[in-house]
Each structure stands twice: as C-alpha cells, then as structure tokens.
Write a protein that binds this DNA or RNA. Structure first.
Lengths: 390, 390
DNA sequence: AAACTTTGTCTATCGGATAAACTAAGTCTT
DNA sequence: AAGACTTAGTTTATCCGATAGACAAAGTTT
C-alpha cells in the first residue's frame, strides 16, 4: 500500500524540512528558517518547539541584530544521541562511535578470525562492546547502528551474497538488532563508503555521486538524487565486473576482461604476464614504498592501473553522468602515482560535455569512508527524512 | 526553494493516487479504490467527484453485486484529451496523435531535409498540422506534446548537444510551446523509447528498466524507480561510448573501443577489416534479407553483433541491476539472428545472481517506442504525478 | 417480506498550515 | 533621551482536507 496524504504526513514532512535546514545551515533564527523554507513563521515556531523538546535542536543564544530585535539562534544538537558505524572487512572489523554529526567519539578495530557468520558476529560484538562503554550520557542514547559488508545487500538488509566471506542469505540486520536492541542498517561496503564521502567527505552537497572503492576488488556506490541506488535486487554497483576487454583475462566471476582485473589490487598478479620484471612486493603498502624510491616497474604498474581506472571511470561517467566521482579504498594509498594517468585518460576519453563539468577526486575520509558512512546511514534513519517530488 | 507540506499538497497527492489507481486498475468502484489506496471512502468520493467534473474519470455503469448494493464502476477517460508524440530522427520526423491511454488516433511522418533547427522546426510543424486537423473534439483538447531527439537534453528541455544533427544549445521546447501553445516535453530518443516500452510495451510494471536503443549509434534510456534518470546535466545513458575494448577501434568521440562500434549499425563498416568477405549490403533492411537467405558472412556479422550487445548489456546489468533490459531501435529488424548470441553471452558472463532473475527482451512497440513514449511523457506531465518517499 | 450486505454520502470533528494582528526587544534619528 | 522604526517571535482566528462513524440507498439471501 502506498503512502497517502494526511495531516500527519504534512507535519512529518515539514518537521523534517525544518530540522534539515537547521542541520545543514545552522545556526539560524526561526525567521531565517521560515524564509529559507517558505514555511510560515508560526509553523516554524511550532515545529521548532517540538524539536527543542526532543533535544534535536538547541537555542545557542542571541545573534547579531540587523536593525531590530536580536534573533535567537538555533543549532542542530549533534550530541542528542550516538550511533555506531561498522565496516566488516574480509580480514578486519572496524567500528566507530560517533555523535549525530559524524564526530568520532571512539574507535576500535579487530582482526577477523574465522569467516563464518557466527564467528564474525562474535568479533563484531567484542569490537562494539568497549564503544558502548565509552558512550557519553545523551538524551537519546544509542539510536542506531550502520554496517557495511563486502557483498550484495537487498533493501531489507539481507546479505544476499558475499563471495569474499563465503556468505549467502545472512540476515545480519535481525541478528544485530536482537543483540543491541536498536535499529540496524546494513549495506554494501561501496555504498556506505559513498554515503560517507557524500555526507562528510569529498562529495558534500553533490546530488549524483559515484564512489569507486578500489582494493582487492572494485565496487561502486551510486548516489542518485541524494539517495543510495541499490538496483532491483541490491546488486547495483558491481562495476568491478564491467568488461573493459571483451576477450581479456578470465575472471573468477566467469566473465572476461573485468575492470577489477586491470584496475584494482588484483592487477598485481598479472604483471609478470607482460614479460616485464616481476614486482618487488605484493601489497599496496609495500609497493607504495618501492614507488616512493623510484622503482620503474612499480611506477609502470601504477601508471597502467591509473589508465585502466580512467577507462572504467569514463564508462561510468558516460552511463550515469554523475556530478562527481570519488575514488577511495585501500588502493588509494598509491594515489600519488595513479592519479596523473587516471586523470589524463579521463580527459582524453570522456565525451566533451562530461569533461567540461565533471569533477573526479580521491576520498577525503580515507580509511574512514565506510565507518563514517555506515554511521551516517544510522543517523539518517533515526532522523527520518521525508521526500516529495512533484 | 523546496516543496513544503500543506493541505493543497495532501489533496494533490491523494487525487493523483486515486486517478492513478483507476487508470491502472480500472474499472473500480469507489470502495475498491478506498481499499486499494487506504484512503477513506469519503475522501475517495470527494476526489472522484472532482475527477468526474474534470472529465478524467467516467462512471461506466453498475458492476456485479457481491451480495449487496451494486457498485458504480469508475474508469479512466482516455478520451478526455489528446497529445502528440514526435520522434525527431536524423533523417525522418515521425509523429502520432494519441489519446491519454496511448491509443493512436493518427500518424504522419516526413523526411527531414535540411538539418538546421529552423528547417527541422518547419518540417515538424508540417507533420503535426494534419494531426491537429484530425483531432477529435474532446473536453481538454490538445494537452501537450512530447518529442524525442537524438541528443542530450537537460532537465529544462534544452538540447545541449545533438552531434548527428549538428545542434548545440537549441531551446526546442520554448520554440514548440510558442508554436502550439501547449506544454512541451523534450527528451533524448533513448529516454522516450524507454518511457514508451515501460508504459505500453515490454517494460510494463517494471521499476528499474534499461532500454537500449540500437541503430546507427547506441544509447540507453534508464528508468530508475519508475522515473527517467537524466543524470547531473542530462547526459546519462551515453552508453554507446562505453569502452568494451580498452585499446580498440578509434571512435569519432575521441575514445577507443566504444560499444557502438561493435554492436550497432556502425559495426557494418568494420567487417572487411577482419579480412573476411565484404558485406553484400550496407543497411539493416538489406542485410536482413541476405540473412534470411542464409548468407554466411551476414549471419556471422549478426552473431558477432549479438555477442557484443550481450557484453555491453552485461556491463549495464552489473552496474545498474535493472529488473529488465529491453532492446529496441532499427537494428532489431535483425533480431532473429542477433538474439541467440546475445542471450548466450549474457548467460555466460553476467554475475550468477543477476542471471537468475534478469529479464532481457526486445522492444514490443517496435518503431513506435519513441513516438508513444514521447506521447506518454506529455500525458504524464498533464496528469501530474506527486510522489512521496519516507 | 425480513434480515443481511455492500455501496456510497453526509456530518461532525480533528489537526495541521496560514495570514494577520500583536508583543517583545532591539536600532536609528534628531 | 525620546520617539520612530525594524526585526523576531507568538497568539488568534480561520481555512481546508482527511477521517470515523452514522446514515441512506440499493442490492442479495433466506
């Protein structure tokens, strides 16, 4: 059954508009909010009153007069509650306790021993425990948990398939909700990374964003009109398996020429193939060190990876026309040597109109994109946004 | 300024829900509508009254009793007005007069002589003229015009760039609105095709749809959550320039290995390259005739085109996870010989989960996808849909 | 024919948004 | 310093649409 209109909906919508306006542009006076939103002053006053009672908004004192009575400034109260953002990696669990503005209050991480769901869940519980103990006293307490996982997640939070963990059909959301007693949001790692960069990082205020997460694989999180796009069944963003060589290298997915074989850490394994000198190391950290000392083979490798990244990004750009592309993930440790070739390739190959306006940049949050994005999804669910389009 | 909530919005939303419910599921009684939508019976009665006054809904008489008073059945009145859908091709203008349900009342087409905007506009006017004369007398008369063009169109209807016409920055919408005095919707050819197939063709009731239009080039129309996705500046869907061979054939766009060089009619020009026998013809109609009589070179060609179409479609599927892919456009005249290789390739290369649920099919509306889609966009704008997401 | 069912309307009420009047609290002018 | 002016925020009366529930209308079943 669809959403129908009634007074409750109107109120919910307007309240969400007022809160959002204050959150993004505060401090603001009631009159400012009224002018910005188009809502009547009385309406703003009423809704603000409720937000004050809910402790989501604070009066921070008088502002500057502009020739009349001084305004009482309103500010979003990020300290009204806490959330926990978790990144469940293949070998590592990272978690952060944040306030409602994404400010980190505490952080933990732990290696992931076994990979069966039970063992992983135990590690998650252990990692989160000290964060809960460190939680300050707030009006709302813990309001939610967000978690990013390396796999495909449907709209209900069910992990459909996580090849690198060997999981299939794991209802992580229910399990965590039972454990912690708060609402849980589960999403793909690239998606939460996209959410993080869009809210707190390189993609602020961007309507259409593609976040490319490059590590052992390659995945994309796509934000369309400010919202994560998950596709029909939650498999959107598997761009690592976009073929950029129709008859290229055979991939474990069964296809050929997949992007991630050329433009992620998986490319390291193929270097000797070209007959060139073998690589002096096999991890990005080590290779970055060699690059820093001028190792020609490594520099070539990263130039080629940059070029291939550029080719794939160009494909995404031509299909999606995002406002911005943000590249993140472990591979960005080598961004210094990847970036020039990547940008050159995009400049060469993207359609002229895209080139003119497109912005491509690297992650601003670094290794925290995912935890912060996961945290943000939880905040976002707690604050509950209503959207209307005519 | 954003949309805020007030009573007018609530009414607009509910009225749009009622109309939509009747339109898609009619005939229905008022009680049926109330049950389906969750709206109160009184609300439905009130809104229906207005819709009856606006002639958008008709009472078609009494229905079957289910043990009590007979219901008065309501039906969407497609004859309340007319729209015109236009496909502005590179060499041909096609136009259709339809009612509000997409029923074709009259059709015209005319070759496009010169390609400068003024000449094209004159041809459009001449093509539309007899349709206007054939227009039946309806309560609302002509309520809008939709037009699909081979180029990139931004959200305001401005044609940013149409390489095949040599147009740049043409405000077709304003021009046509001045001429005809009704609201005009302009969009990309692939987008209107997508709209057509989704409303009246192979993509009915599909939430996320990708329509691939294959002709002299290759373009996609993407429908996300029931709405056309245009990207940040209207360039989304330029998938013809997705590279499927990183260092492949040089394309006129400046890039290499573009999909449309391998999987559209542009591929015909490259056959001799492989050293094989030259093609016996150069248009799809002629080649289809040769295929029908078993010409091996032509059959090979179409097998290869099918394979390449499959590769590109797999890429789109992995990125977007649409519910359905519909292939249309002039090239589908040869679908008989393209389809097997295309489907095999997708089955081989798509990720296992996609494969399981994805539906790929050819256009149901054939050469009318675009005109009907354009007409539908005009209808849709006239009826005005409001959407709320929580 | 009486009881029951279903359809659709009528009526009173509720709860939001709004404009306009009003109070509060400042600045500016002379 | 006093009055005029400005701006901020609240109060009041009004409007409007959705809703529940009563009711009327028009069937069917026994």
């Amino acid at each position: 059954m669809r959403v129908t209109g009634d007074l409750a909906l109107v109120k919910k919508l307007n309240k969400s508009i007022v809160l959002d306006t204050i959150r993004r542009n505060g401090p603001l006076s009631r009159t400012d909010v009224s002018e910005r939103t188009g809502l009547n002053k009385a309406t703003v006053s009423n809704l603000t009153l409720e937000l004050l009672e809910q402790k989501l908004v604070e009066e921070t004192g008088l502002g500057e007069s502009s020739g009349g009575r001084k305004p009482l400034m309103l500010l979003f109260n990020g300290a009204a509650g806490c959330v926990i953002g978790i990144e469940l990696g293949v070998t590592l669990v990272k978690a952060a306790l944040t306030d409602l503005t994404g400010g980190i209050l505490a952080e933990r991480s732990a290696p992931l021993a076994g990979q069966d769901p039970e063992a992983a869940l135990a590690v998650v519980r252990e990692t989160v425990k000290p964060l809960l103990e460190a939680m300050p006293d707030t009006p709302h307490g813990l309001v939610g948990i967000g978690i990013g996982v390396p796999g495909m997640v449907d709209e209900s939070g069910l992990i459909l398939y996580a090849p690198n963990l060997g999981w299939e059909g794991v209802d992580l959301r229910s399990r965590l909700e039972e454990t912690f007693g708060v609402p849980v949001v589960v999403d793909n790692e690239a998606n939460v990374g996209a959410a993080g960069e869009r809210e707190y990082g390189a993609g602020r205020h961007v309507r259409h964003l593609v976040y490319v997460s490059a590590g052992m694989g390659l995945g994309s999180g796509m934000i369309i009109d400010g919202q994560l796009y998950k596709g029909a069944w939650g498999y959107a963003g598997e761009t690592g398996h976009m073929s950029i060589e129709s008859d290229g290298r055979l991939c474990s997915c069964g296809s050929r020429g997949c992007w991630e074989l050329y433009a992620s850490e998986r490319a390291y394994a193929y270097v000797s193939e070209a007959g060139s000198t073998p690589l002096p190391a096999s991890t990005t950290s080590e290779l970055a060190a060699h690059a820093r000392s001028g190792d020609a083979a490594v520099l070539d490798l990263y130039r080629e990876i940059g070029r291939r990244l550029g080719i794939g990004i160009t494909n995404l750009v031509n299909g999606f026309n995002p406002e911005k592309i943000v590249v993140g993930g472990p591979l960005t440790e080598a961004k210094e040597w990847i970036e020039p070739a990547m940008l050159d390739t995009i400049a060469e190959r993207a359609l002229p109109y895209h080139r003119r306006e497109l912005a491509v940049s690297f992650s601003e949050l670094g290794s925290r994109s995912a935890v912060l994005g996961a945290a943000h999804l939880a905040v976002s669910q707690f604050l509950g946004r209503v959207r209307v389009s005519l």
